[in-house]
Write a protein that binds this DNA or RNA. Structure first.
Length: 282
DNA sequence: AAGATTACCTGAAGGC
DNA sequence: TGCCTTCAGGTAATCT
């Protein structure tokens, strides 16, 4: 599923061709995941793509109106679980579940494909409050900023890592992998982490995200980048979807539990359970 | 009001 | 073989 490293890889790919292109037409299929389809069809054609950016797991295409005025709107795309953005020649057959076609002035098309339609497309006005609730960009956050976000929170650290208001862009894969690297059990209450643990966790988050970006993301189910290429970081996963396999540090079998409705993978030896959650052992 | 739970959606996988 | 159930999870809505 597309998390920060996957979205970053897609953004870097789209940046090679999209800036400077003008959208010449919009064609939509199913629209139940689009904020206001009529507005998109009416207002997007004619606008020029100035830049392609990422905020957490969101892609943002900064736009300039046809008349060159300073409109400052942006096209927002979230890939949900199964969303894909690909460029194609108009005559190329469309993949199943292709729900949006954006024709470009170089004769090509940007297409949005999404089996489950958990994604989102919206046209944002300039300075919309839309993304203001997002937390820090993980690769730029400081230890102090991260610590402030964790202070007093009584939810499991696993759930807090998934909370986009804390650090934006982390999903289930990188939450589990970060906690393993930092040797912190996913059920630990976020506010109970020591300052050493907070520091180690942020270091782990940054190193795992950076490594995943270098390997062009994780292709677990159906993620591919803007060129249709799979990522490679799934080869480096230490716990995610490795239940029953040996921990690469200590050889103990990886376990899976459900936290907040999400599966969580960890090493029961490297990541010591809080007292409250420890199973009685004889 | 933070934390927990559920709905949304479809295809893959497993059970029988 | 085929039908049924379960699972995957990002986010928003709904609960407690």
């Amino acid at each position: 599923m597309p998390e920060l490293p996957e979205v970053e890889t897609i953004v870097r790919g789209l940046r090679l061709t999209l800036p400077g292109r003008r959208v010449t037409g919009v064609r939509l299929g199913k629209t139940d995941f689009i904020d206001d389809p009529a507005v998109l069809e009416r207002d997007l054609p004619g606008q020029k793509i100035l830049a392609v950016r990422r905020m957490g797991k969101y892609l943002l295409f900064d736009l300039e109106p046809a008349d060159g005025s300073a409109g400052g709107a942006s096209l927002l795309v979230h890939l949900g679980m199964t969303g894909r953005l690909v460029t194609a020649a108009p005559e190329e057959p469309e993949a199943p579940h292709t729900h949006a076609f954006f024709a470009l002035d170089d004769g090509r098309e940007l297409r949005y494909v999404d089996v489950r339609r958990f994604g989102r497309i919206a046209l944002l006005a300039k300075d919309g409050a839309e993304l203001s609730k997002l937390g820090f960009e993980p690769l730029e956050a400081t230890e102090g900023q991260f610590a402030d976000k964790l202070r007093g929170r009584r939810a499991p650290i696993k759930s807090v890592l998934l909370d986009q208001r804390v650090l934006r862009g982390i999903g289930n894969i990188y939450a589990d992998e970060s906690l393993w690297r930092a040797r912190i059990h996913p059920l630990r209450l976020a506010g109970s982490l020591t300052s050493n643990e907070v520091r180690e966790l942020l270091r782990a988050v940054k190193s795992v995200l950076a490594a995943a970006i270098r390997m062009r993301g994780s292709s677990v189910s159906d993620y591919v980048d803007a060129d249709g290429q799979r990522g490679l970081f799934q080869q480096r996963h230490r716990v995610y979807q490795r239940e029953g396999k040996k921990c690469s540090r200590c050889g103990t079998a990886i376990e899976r539990i459900v936290i907040g409705g999400r599966s969580s993978h960890f090493c029961p030896k490297c990541q010591r359970a809080p007292r409250r959650a420890r199973k009685s052992k004889r």
